Every structure is written in structure tokens, then in C-alpha cells.
Computed example of a mutant assay.
Amino acid sequence: MDLSMISAAIMPLHLRSCLIYRQEKLIFEHYRHKQIKHEPAKINSCTKSFLSALICIALDHGLFPPPDTRLGECIPMLDKEGNDWRKHITIRHLLTMSGGWRWKEFGGINSFPQMTRSQDWVSFALDQPMAYPPGKVMEYNSGSSQILSRLLVQETGGSVASFAETYLFGPLGINDYHWEQDPQGIHTGGFGLSLRPADLLNFGRLYLQQGQWENRQLISSELAVHSVRPAISVTAPWRGYYAWHWWCDSFERDRKPSFEYFYARGYGGQFIYVIPQLETVVVLTDDRRKRERPPVDVFPRLIAPHL
């Protein structure tokens, strides 16, 4: 690995942070200024991957319905929809963003902003018209994440944040965070979590180690591996595959795959890349305005070639 080449490539971008962990060592650490190391900041949709981890943990503890449970068994109102496709939506469909609702996160009908302006986000997400049979098409949908967050509260009997503190944040040493809530007081499943760069790195390391942390299995290795496997092809303009609220892709050299990776992705430049083959985790964060922001392909274009 040529760290000097990576450093030369990313320094002009003025990223908020860039951390590279490889083979049990933090080998590269960059912050725009030294205070950033200690300051929690919004990770936007990377929150989805943390929610996925919490659902895996709840499944391990027998506190959450199996993935192929129909959503109508958990939310009876869905069974009143006659022959609507939504009767066949399962928890797995929510995790893979393939519930089948007509939803455009941004642009077009702007489903996400409409949801956040509504008085009941979960009801808004559930009430959207169907466009596809469940499981057929991946359509990026933060409403699905909010439904999952509501189910986690319903099934565990406590808040999402308190569950995270007990089973995930506490063991990982995450004690300085902020997590937004919807009008019903349910922590946001698709965005809204603020963490430090080191917290993102440790979360990536947890998955690199197949759910194990300091000789303790926080997530069963079976679910830690299964939840980041490609589950459904993504729709343009995305590339690769989607797993359980994680993205999956591969880095290609000379038109041949060089290594596969999975990653958490948040609006504005928040990323956690996990490359099992190379025993590597890469964290990128940013916080600048859109016109000043670096391109979204920093990892595949400027970092991956040097790994």
C-alpha cells in the first residue's frame, strides 16, 4: 500500500476526515483540523447500516420477527388493504429497499422531504401507493428504514437509542452521540445519527471481524456476514447491489474485479468501506456545502487503486 500516494490524492479535497485501518492497525489518519477527531457530526444515511446492525442483534436475541415475516403480521392495518401488493411485504423487503412502494427519495415526487414534513412518518411511508410487487425492484426509501425503526421499538419495548447503548454503542465505546427522532419520538432509522470518525471506524471493524468485538460476539457471525451479502441489484444511477441497509460493490482493475467490498453511505460524503479480502476499513467524512464538496467516487478513484 502506498500511503504517500493516498495522502497526495486526498489532501487537495479538504475532507473532514479520512481514516484507514488495515490488518489490526490504524495506518492513516487525516482530519481537516484536530478538533474533528473528538466532535460528533451527522453521518446521514450511514445511520441505516447502524439500524441494520441493531436489527441483527435483536434477531440474535429473539427479540425481532424473522426476516420473512409479513409486515402485516406486525402492523395489522396492512391486512385491511384487500388484494394490494403490500400484503406480501416482508421485513426482508424493508431491509433490502424492495417493498415495492412508489417512492422517489429526492427529485420527482420528493418522497423523503414530504415524509419529514408529515405528522406521522411511519403512516406516510406505509400509505404510499405500490409500484411493483415486493422483492422485484430496489427503490431507495428512507421510509422503509423508519418503519423498521418503529418495529424495533415495538418488539423490544424500548427506544432504539437505549437498545443501541446496551448492545452496540456501549461495547464499541460510543458514548458521545446525538440521534434525531420523528414526531412520535421514534429515533430516525434512515438518517439523523451523529458520531465521531473513530466511531464509524470501530463499527466497520466490527463487520470486518464478522460481528466480534474484543472477544465478544456482538452480532452472530452468521447474520454479520449474511446482512452484507448482495441481495438485490440496485437501480440507476446507483451501481452494484444492496444488502440489508448496506451497499455492495467491487473494485475493478483492467476490467477485472480486484476486490469486493461493502459500505455504508451517507449524503454529503459520509462513507464506511469494509474490504474483507484486504482486512481493511476506510472511513471518509465531509461537511461542506454542495458546490464545495468532493466527488462521491473518492474511494474507488483515489484510494482503492493504492490498496
Rank of each mutant, 00 (worst) to 15 (best):
E24Q: 14
H245W: 08
A231T: 12
L151W: 09
T96G: 10
L71W: 08
H187F: 04
T188K: 08
G135C: 08
L223C: 02
C56E: 09
E29I: 07
R196N: 13
D120R: 06
L59W: 05
G192Y: 00
W121H: 03
E29A: 11
V225P: 01
R253C: 01
S227Q: 04
L54C: 02
G211N: 09
L95F: 00
P12I: 10
L71P: 04
Y167R: 11
R289T: 07
R289W: 15
Q119A: 14
R229G: 14
L94S: 05
L59C: 02
G135R: 07
S159L: 04
L218Y: 03
G135P: 08
G189M: 06
F124D: 07
W238G: 00
F191E: 00
G266M: 03
P65W: 08
F106A: 05
V228F: 01
Q181V: 14
D84Q: 04
Q154K: 15
G82R: 08
N44H: 09
N215S: 05
S194L: 09
Q181Y: 09
K42Y: 13
G170K: 11
P295K: 15
R92E: 08
A164S: 06
L26P: 01
L218W: 02
P76G: 10
K136T: 14
V298G: 05
I75S: 10
I43C: 07
P237C: 09
P257L: 13
H245Q: 09
V225D: 13
E292N: 12
A58H: 14
G82A: 11
V228W: 00
C56S: 12
E214H: 10
G143H: 02
D182H: 10
P295A: 12
N110C: 03
W121E: 06
V225A: 12
Y207V: 02
K136Q: 15
L152P: 04
W244E: 06
Q217F: 06
Q146E: 15
F124G: 04
G158P: 02
W244S: 03
H245Y: 09
I89N: 03
W103A: 05
T188C: 10
T90P: 00
W246Q: 02
L78Y: 02
E252N: 12
R293K: 14
S220V: 12
I272M: 04
Y263A: 06
I91R: 11
R150C: 07
D176M: 09
L208S: 04
R205H: 01
E214R: 13
V296S: 12
E105P: 00
T47M: 04
R253V: 08
P129E: 15
S49N: 06
Y207L: 07
W121V: 05
P40G: 10
C18M: 10
W238P: 00
G107Y: 00
I57F: 13
C18V: 14
G190R: 04
P67Q: 15
F112P: 00
S227D: 03
V160M: 11
S7F: 03
Q212N: 10
K256C: 06
R289P: 00
P40E: 14
T90V: 02
I55C: 10
G190W: 06
W213N: 09
G185T: 11
D297R: 15
A41V: 07
V160A: 11
I36E: 14
H178S: 15
W246T: 01
S162E: 13
I89L: 05
R291C: 02
P305I: 12
P12W: 06
S145I: 01
D127L: 13
D84L: 03
D254H: 15
N83I: 09
F50H: 13
I275C: 13
P300N: 05
